[in-house]
Simulated scan of single mutants.
Amino acid sequence: MNNDLYAVVGHPISHSKSPRIHSLFASQTGEALEYTAIQAPLDDFAGTVHGFFARGGKGLNITVPFKEQAWDLADRRTDRAAKAGASNTLYRDADGTLIADNTDGHGLVQDLDNHGVTLANARILVLGAGGAVRGVIAPLLARHPASLTIANRTLAKAEALVQLFTPDAQGTELNACGFEQPDRPFDLIINGTSASLQGDLPPVSANVIGADTVVYDMMYSLQTTTFNQWALDRGARHVFDGLGMLVEQAAESFRIWRGVRPETAPVIEELRND
């Protein structure tokens, strides 16, 4: 019997940990599947997707730079994909309808839960206003923090996100500002910029770090990320990187496709030790 086919699509894609993660999930759960990485041409993402499903493929994960194109390509979007404006998970239902979902926000919140971070009534600062941040705002608001401040280099982009998610705020104080404006400690700071990948820092004040501040960098690295090291040097209580988020969003995709939720802790540990 042939295994069901799944893949991650991006450009570039050779660095992706998704094949390793889903291979570990399959071994753990006994699910018969094959998961590969596909580098799509920048000018023919749609052809890559349609070709994959035409060959009998069952589901795709989507990574940069195609998440918005995946959203556009879908026949139907889940509520969380609709809000995120991007999709990292595609699949077809029994009728052949191409459905877009977004599991990034679920992955972040689940990993924060794994680390024992309390979101209810927390004062949260989110750095950045791009697609990575847009995908996590609604799941964060669903946990009813006291306040959520979106800081970004271009203020208008942060303000646009506040306007978009105000209907989801449900009593949470939702604010937008530039990077330099926050000047008091927060309970949780989430770095949604890609600055750490270049070894750079968003220009935020050290005053956002207090003795009880938890910092989460959505980027991940074998070493402490640049932003997390900056936070530790300024007295943050705990810092975490985005490897757990990566595994948790993958587990949610796996559940959508297979109806089985894998255990994530042993997979995260194995990746840390690779």
Rank of each mutant, 00 (worst) to 15 (best):
F66V: 04
L108K: 11
L148K: 03
D233F: 00
L243E: 06
L201V: 12
I124F: 06
L60C: 08
A138Y: 05
D75K: 11
K67G: 05
A160E: 14
I256P: 01
D43F: 01
A146R: 14
A120W: 00
P266R: 04
L161Q: 10
V64C: 10
N114V: 04
A94M: 00
T224A: 12
R153G: 04
A132D: 03
A120P: 00
V49W: 02
S253G: 14
A146D: 09
S205I: 07
D4N: 12
L222F: 01
W71M: 11
S221T: 01
A206Y: 00
K83Q: 13
W230C: 03
V8N: 03
D111H: 12
S87T: 11
N3H: 09
L148M: 06
M245L: 12
I13H: 09
N175E: 11
A146S: 13
G96T: 07
I256K: 03
Q249L: 09
T78N: 11
A70M: 02
N273R: 15
F227I: 04
A132Q: 07
F227H: 04
M245G: 02
T118M: 10
H238D: 12
S18Q: 09
A156H: 12
R261N: 02
A236Q: 02
F186I: 02
F186N: 01
V208E: 01
N228W: 08
Y216H: 14
D217G: 05
V239W: 02
Q181V: 13
M218Q: 06
L271K: 06
G242D: 03
D101C: 08
R234M: 01
I21T: 07
I189D: 07
A251V: 07
P12A: 11
P262D: 03
N191P: 09
P167W: 12
L232Y: 00
G96S: 08
V267D: 01
L232R: 12
L98P: 09
